[in-house]
Amino acid sequence: MVKPGDGYKEIPEGGLILESGNAKRYETGGWRTQRPVIDLDTCINCFRCWAFCPDSSIETEDEEIVGVDYDHCKGCGVCAHECPVDAIAMEQE
């Protein structure tokens, strides 16, 4: 696994990434200007937000929506747009 600050003698050649599925370690939450906030009392667990989220950032537990992975959510607002009961509000960061 390449770490920040590694030198040219330590990293794979040609820009190759030799470990699969490591994108989840690249935290893209910092790109966000607005954050989705879910009102779990209003939420009906239809899972539309979960299905539409382009970054797989809607968190679930025991088949229920429990929150948002803010380390990876880029704040696109698709979830708030799709929510049929207006349970998701976009708040300024």
Partner: peptide, 18 residues
């Protein structure tokens, strides 16, 4: 493996050095 990923300020220079 991933070939040709984005390579910014943090590693591009090291790859050119290689």
């Amino acid at each position: 493996v991933t070939v040709g990923p984005l390579d910014l300020q943090d590693f591009y220079f090291e790859h050119k050095m290689q």
